[in-house]
């Protein structure tokens, strides 16, 4: 299945945000759920192998947008022999704009083969909160292959470049260097003019200052609850 969705948020000139574009197609449907909130609504199970999904998010100068989802994404095997499923999310935030991306987790079901590509560009003076959680397998299940590939640029420089691979194709991903047997991992990137102080977040979770104007909170946990317990409070610093 191929699908593309687009969200364009613009300042409405009265201190609010107007969604100039809000367009989706199954299984990538988008609904406005608040003055500056949008939810992704899964229009079908998946992603399944062979799916090619693209979402573009644009936040204009002075606009604010918060993107959530109504349910976890469940990456599933699909037809044998199909190429990896792929979700490419491209986002841009203009100066004075603010974007919060905090969807429900991605769950890597057994036998899936999924690639999640994130490419975010923030102009100087824009604010970003970008959250991604990954659950390795459904209950008592080994995950399939998921690779997340993240690039976040701020003010013309690459602020954060990160890939994470789990599953049978990723050597020793559950070893002590990578996830150490943890069943879930979450990351939260903050970028912009106003940032919190570094902190340890309890358990295997820390909030670290990046080399550029941003911070990364990373949490590894037995399950998604441990990751949420560590990362949700960091979301309180949200720009949106």
């Amino acid at each position: 299945m191929r699908a593309a969705a687009a969200i364009v948020a613009e300042a409405d000139g009265r201190g609010g945000t107007r969604l100039a574009v809000l367009r989706g197609e199954s299984p990538l449907l988008v609904r406005r759920t608040g003055p500056h909130a949008v939810h992704l609504v899964g229009g079908a199970a998946g992603p399944l192998r062979g799916d090619d999904l693209r979402l573009s998010v644009e936040v204009g100068p002075g606009a604010r947008l918060s993107v959530h989802s109504v349910a976890a994404q469940l990456a599933l095997p699909g037809r044998p022999g199909s190429p990896a499923s792929r979700l490419v999310v491209t986002a841009s935030v203009a100066a004075g704009g603010a974007l919060r991306w905090s969807p429900e987790p991605l769950i890597a079901a057994a036998g899936c083969h999924h690639l999640a590509v994130t490419d975010v560009t923030v102009e100087e003076g824009g604010s970003l909160l970008w959250r991604d959680d990954l659950v390795c397998g459904r209950h008592a299940e080994e995950p399939g292959d998921v690779r997340a590939d993240v690039t976040i640029r701020y003010a013309g420089s690459t602020l954060h470049r990160h890939e994470l691979a789990v599953g049978p194709g990723a050597p020793a991903w559950s070893g002590a260097a990578v996830l150490g047997g943890g069943g879930a991992v979450g990351t939260l990137v903050l970028a912009g003019p106003s940032l919190p102080s570094p902190a340890t977040l309890g358990g295997d979770a820390v909030l670290m200052p990046l080399a550029g104007p941003g911070m990364l909170a990373t949490a590894v946990g037995r399950d998604i609850r441990a990751v949420r317990a560590a990362l949700d409070p960091v979301g309180a610093y949200a720009p949106v």
Partner: peptide, 22 residues
Amino acid sequence: PVDALPAAGAPLLDIGAELHAT
């Protein structure tokens, strides 16, 4: 290009290094 070079991360190496520094 530099952005296209490998970027494989290991969350527990990052987290562990921060805890170790304390």
